[in-house]
């Protein structure tokens, strides 16, 4: 296993871009939602309201960062840091363009899944350490939801892994030069998409933080920058899932030659980000137990069948 770690410049560049994009998504999401909901969205600060992000940042940095006296201080502070860290670490294995990326790991897919599992700790710790009943309900829901959906997420990827014969994300992209995996692995793609929404707990699967039911769920007690980290963490998760879909199913940076590869990557990823935002604008939220039974009774068998069929076809064609 060779681990070549990119230069500090590349790391800095990717880190900066990813966090910048996640922050910009605050504005993008609000504008897109506004567009879809027949209203304007933030359009006052700077051209098209673009500096809204700056205003939000100033606000969130200068707000009182209150730790409730009844909370468990250590894990209360630790929780938001975990979500930021694990998602940013996951970006380390994402190949953005032929020579742009931080690590080419042979276990890239597993690494991403492992990081996603660690993300569940953030939500659980955040909820439990808050010592708030709404937060407790939220983290209970989050634990159940994330653990279940990780199962299908993993299985839905195995089809891609079997087709490309590699856990390395870069090699998976390279294997899609002729045909994107979305065609042979359409079912896998759909399951991964659904599981991805559930993992990043956005509407319709924002059950851990369903505001109409349990206020803000696991981050009810958070304020200031600690809340900001959960908030940006959610957008980072969105960028990550969109990037992974691009890498695993939509040929990563491949595209007609008139644009540089990294642009194709960005365009595809952004299309999925916009799709996730559209989902939020369009779909109601199922009940928590409905979501679980949908996962275990429908998605799990479906992903297993998908894996079996894929395996059978590969064996057959060898």
């Amino acid at each position: 296993m060779t681990l070549e770690i990119g230069s500090a410049l590349t790391i800095g560049l990717i880190l900066g871009t990813v966090i910048g994009v996640a922050a910009m998504l605050i504005w993008v999401e609000r504008r897109l939602l506004g567009f879809w909901q027949d209203r304007l969205g933030p359009n006052r600060v700077g051209p098209f309201g673009l500096f809204q992000v700056v205003a939000d940042m100033i606000k969130i940095f200068t707000k009182e960062d209150w730790t409730p006296p009844f909370a468990d201080k250590f894990s209360f502070v630790l929780a938001p840091a975990i979500i930021m860290t694990v998602i940013l670490l996951s970006f380390a294995v994402v190949p953005f363009a032929p020579n742009l990326g931080i690590v080419d790991s042979n276990i890239g897919v597993l690494f991403v899944l492992a990081m996603a599992s660690l993300g569940a700790y953030s939500v659980m710790l955040g909820g439990l350490s808050s010592d708030n009943k709404y937060a407790l309900l939220g983290s209970l829901r989050a634990a159940a939801q994330m653990v279940s959906y990780e199962v299908f997420m993993g299985i839905s990827l195995l089809g891609v892994v079997a087709l490309s014969g590699s856990f390395n994300l870069r090699e998976i992209v390279l294997a899609q030069e002729d045909m994107w995996y979305v065609l042979p692995q359409f079912v896998g793609f759909v399951i991964f998409l659904i599981a991805g929404v559930a993992e990043s707990h956005r509407l319709p699967f924002d059950i851990p933080e369903a505001e109409q039911e349990i206020c803000a769920g696991y981050h009810t007690e958070y304020s200031g920058m600690k809340f900001g980290m959960f908030f940006v963490g959610e957008y980072l998760g969105l960028v990550l899932i969109s990037s992974l879909i691009t890498v695993l199913f939509f040929g990563g940076w491949y595209g007609p030659a008139f644009l540089p590869p990294v642009f194709w990557f960005a365009i595809k990823a952004f299309a999925f980000i916009a799709f996730f935002i559209l989902l939020r604008a369009a779909i109601p939220r199922p009940r928590y137990d409905q979501l679980m039974s949908y996962g275990w009774l429908f998605l799990l068998p479906l992903s297993l069948i998908n894996l079996l069929v894929t395996g059978a076809i590969i064996l057959n064609s060898q």
Partner: peptide, 16 residues
């Protein structure tokens, strides 16, 4: 009603 079951958009259309 739609919003309370998690559907965010209808209320904005209905306000028109």
């Amino acid at each position: 009603f739609a919003q309370d079951v998690g559907q965010l958009s209808p209320i904005f259309y209905m306000f028109v």
